[in-house]
C-alpha cells in the first residue's frame, strides 16, 4: 500500500487527517464500545442531533429495512445539550480528533441557545469543535415548514446562529430543498463555512397485513445505497455554484462510493447507515482511498476533489 499518499483535507477550518467521517445519528457519540474500532482513525467524529432539552424520541417501530436502504423516525432522541457537553464532550476529547456536533431545534431561539452553549464548551475539544446545523427540522414558528425548504428561513437562521459563534459552522441540507443551488448560496452568504448533504429523504412503508404504516412516526427518512445516485447528483450540482467545501453523504458503503462523491466535488464524506451492517466500512474506505490515489498517481486526495466537474468557464 502506498504510504506517501496525503489524505488530509481542511473543511470549515477543521483539519481532518482524512476525509472520512461517520454521519450524524448513525454512530452514537463515537466513544461507545459499540463502534468496534479505533475511532481516532477517522477524520472527525460527528455526533447525534442535539437539542436544547432532552427528547424521548418517537414511538416504535422507529426503523424498517427497505430495498437497499432503510427508513428511520428516531425523533431526535437525545439527552439535551447540557448532558452532551458534560458527559460526552470530555470523553470525545480523549480521541484527539475534531468533533462535529449536529444541532437541531424547532425554533430559531432553540438553535441559537444550543449553539451558544456548545460555543462555550469549545475549549473541551483541542482538536477542534465544529457545528453541523440540521435544518431539516420543521420550524414550529413558521407553521411547521422545514428551515431546509426555504432559503430565506435558512439564511435568517444562519445569521442568528453566526452572531453567537465563531466556531466552524456546517449547514446540512435536506434533499428536499426545492432549489439546492439557491439554498446553498443563501447559507453560504449568511456565513456557513461548509455545507453537508444530503440528509434523509421522506419515505414510508406500509404493513400490508395490518393495513397501517409500519413506523410509529408514520413517515421516516430514507437512507442507504438506495439514495446514493440522487445524493451524488446534488453534490455535483451544488459544487458548481458555491465556494465553501462540501461534505458528501447518502448511501456510501464502499471506497468506490466515497470516490464518486469526492470526484463530484465533496471535500469529505460521511458514512451513515452502511455502518450498521459493516462496522468497519470507514476503515475500509480510508484504505481504499489510499490505494485509489496510488493507482491514479495522485499524491493528495485534494487533487481529486471535484475532478469530475465540468471545467469552470468552459
Amino acid at each position: 500500500m502506498p504510504d506517501d499518499v496525503d489524505l488530509s483535507v481542511e473543511v470549515a477550518g477543521l483539519r481532518l487527517k482524512n476525509p472520512v467521517l461517520p454521519a450524524s445519528g448513525t454512530f452514537g457519540y463515537g466513544h461507545e464500545p459499540g463502534a468496534l474500532f479505533d475511532v481516532s482513525r477517522l477524520g472527525a467524529v460527528v455526533v447525534k442531533g442535539t437539542t436544547l432539552r432532552p427528547r424521548a424520541g418517537n414511538p416504535p417501530p422507529r426503523i424498517v429495512e427497505t430495498t437497499a436502504g432503510m427508513l428511520n423516525s428516531i425523533g431526535l432522541e437525545n439527552p439535551g445539550v447540557d448532558a452532551v457537553v458534560a458527559e460526552h464532550l470530555p470523553l470525545l476529547a480523549r480521541l484527539g480528533v475534531p468533533v462535529i456536533v449536529n444541532v437541531a431545534g424547532d425554533t430559531v431561539d432553540e438553535y441559537v441557545e444550543v449553539v451558544r452553549r456548545l460555543d462555550r464548551a469549545a475549549g473541551l475539544i483541542p482538536a477542534g469543535l465544529g457545528l453541523e446545523l440540521n435544518i431539516s427540522c420543521p420550524n414550529v414558528e413558521a407553521g411547521g415548514l422545514e428551515f431546509g425548504r426555504d432559503p430565506a428561513l435558512a439564511a435568517r437562521l444562519l445569521g442568528m446562529v453566526r452572531a453567537v459563534t465563531g466556531l466552524p459552522l456546517i449547514v446540512k441540507l435536506s434533499p428536499h430543498s426545492p432549489d439546492v443551488v439557491a439554498m446553498g448560496r443563501a447559507v453560504q452568504d449568511a456565513g456557513a463555512d461548509a455545507i453537508s448533504l444530503v440528509n434523509t429523504m421522506v419515505g414510508m412503508a406500509i404493513d400490508i397485513w395490518r393495513r397501517r404504516p409500519v413506523l410509529g412516526g408514520i413517515t421516516g427518512g430514507l437512507s442507504g445505497p438506495a439514495i446514493k445516485p440522487m445524493a451524488v447528483a446534488m453534490v455535483y450540482e451544488l459544487a458548481q455554484h458555491v465556494d465553501v467545501p462540501l461534505i458528501g453523504m447518502g448511501g456510501i458503503a464502499t471506497w468506490q462510493d466515497a470516490v464518486e462523491f469526492i470526484l463530484a466535488g465533496a471535500s469529505a464524506v460521511a458514512v451513515g447507515s452502511a455502518l450498521f451492517a459493516n462496522p468497519l466500512a470507514p476503515l475500509e474506505i480510508i484504505d481504499g482511498l489510499v490505494d485509489y490515489c496510488g493507482a491514479q498517481k495522485v499524491s493528495s486526495v485534494r487533487e481529486l476533489i471535484g475532478a469530475a466537474l465540468p471545467r469552470r468557464g468552459s
Binding site: 459499540g34 416504535p60 417501530p61 428516531i74 432522541e77 462496522p279
Partner: peptide
Amino acid sequence: EAYMACGRGLCLGCAVR
C-alpha cells in the same frame, strides 16, 4: 423482539417503551 439495524446502541432504532 424489535427491528434492529446496528445491534450496538448506536442508532436508537430498536426502542422499547
